[in-house]
């Protein structure tokens, strides 16, 4: 069992643990932010570069530091490894750079985006971004594409994390969407605008860290912080049936999978639960859902959030 030290916290972890996983075991104060890594999806991570850390000591056997910052989500810990994350000004600056890159072509249309309030890019920008932009060129835009009646694709907001592609690949049968084109005009899309249509396709909405894939049945219905999340379940022949309902009064405005501390779904849910069961009588309500770490929704108060960065900022 290798021992790893991250920002001064030492922890012993099983073989094959990544730096990111080890950091999450220590707690949110040392865990790097992630935009593309998703623990439930194989081969995810490595793209967005927000989780970069510096390895100041490779291992007990080979103490040399790693020459470049590494993606913590894809780098395995070695025994005796020492890592700096938030305590390294160099890493904090590099992360600011990544956030700037992610934002230069982002439309910043949060006021009309359904993801606002539960958007990881918003959180990231809030924690690491500049208050103004240095990018004074026209932002990139894509042609609108219709990918069916349930899922809204907003390519302009996409940060190409590949999570939806991997979800479609690993959770659903017969993946019909992927990444087209190259470089900064690469886009997620379906082949010849084919509709995404299978029982678990709705999960791409939950994995999307930004507002690129949102729920059409919830579109413009409410800001998420005006809805009340409750855990509920139903007897579903296709999936676990364990969901979170987002209520306004007695109306079920939206159904999502339950998300953990890191904003990742606990269990995939089927499209029937997500899109078709919009009445409280369809569900057995368990009680209020605690939302922490990544959201303003939980208590409707910013200062109650678990994330230490907000506390530091004194908001």
């Amino acid at each position: 069992m290798p021992k790893v030290t991250i920002d001064g916290h030492t922890i012993q972890v099983p073989d094959g643990t990544t730096i990111l996983q080890a950091a999450r075991m220590i707690g949110p104060e040392v865990a790097p932010p992630t935009m593309c890594y998703y623990s439930k999806l194989k081969t995810s991570g490595g793209y967005c570069r927000t989780c970069i850390v510096k390895v100041t000591k490779g291992s007990d056997k080979d103490p040399r530091p790693m020459p470049k910052p590494v993606a913590s989500c894809r780098t395995m810990v070695m025994d005796g490894m020492e890592v700096v994350n938030n305590t390294s000004p160099e890493i904090v600056d590099a992360r600011k750079g990544v956030v700037e890159f992610l934002l230069i072509n982002h439309p910043l249309d949060c006021p009309v985006c359904d993801q606002a309030g539960e958007c990881h890019l918003q959180d990231l920008g809030y924690e690491h971004g500049l208050s103004s932009t240095r990018y004074d060129f026209e932002r990139r835009t894509f042609e609108r594409k219709d990918i069916g009646d349930k899922i809204q694709l907003h390519m302009n907001r996409c940060i190409l994390c590949y999570r939806c592609v991997k979800t479609a690949d690993q959770v659903t049968d017969g993946r019909s969407h992927g990444v087209m084109n190259r470089g900064d005009v690469a886009e997620i899309s379906t082949y010849i605008e084919k509709a995404i249509d299978n029982d678990f396709s709705g999960n791409v909405i939950d994995v999307c860290p930004v507002g690129a894939l949102t729920d059409k049945t919830f579109r413009f219905k409410s800001r998420v912080w005006f809805t009340k999340p409750v855990d509920a379940h139903r007897d579903c022949p296709k999936c676990s049936g364990k969901t979170t309902l987002w209520l306004k009064g007695e109306d079920v405005l939206r159904v999502t999978a339950r998300k953990d501390q890191w904003g990742e779904v606990e269990e995939w849910i089927c499209n029937e639960c997500r899109f078709d069961k919009k009445k409280t009588k369809d569900w057995i309500i368990e009680g209020p859902r605690k939302i922490d770490h990544h959201s303003v929704i939980s208590q409707n108060h910013y200062n109650k959030l678990a994330n230490p960065h907000y506390k530091k900022l004194g908001k």
């Binding site: 793209y47 570069r49 750079g97 060129f137 990139r140 190409l160 690469a186």
Partner: peptide, 14 residues
């Protein structure tokens, strides 16, 4: 640029 990782995808165009 292949567009996989953010710094290269966005930075080269900028």
């Amino acid at each position: 640029s292949c567009g996989q990782c953010s710094p290269c995808r966005e930075g080269t165009g900028w």
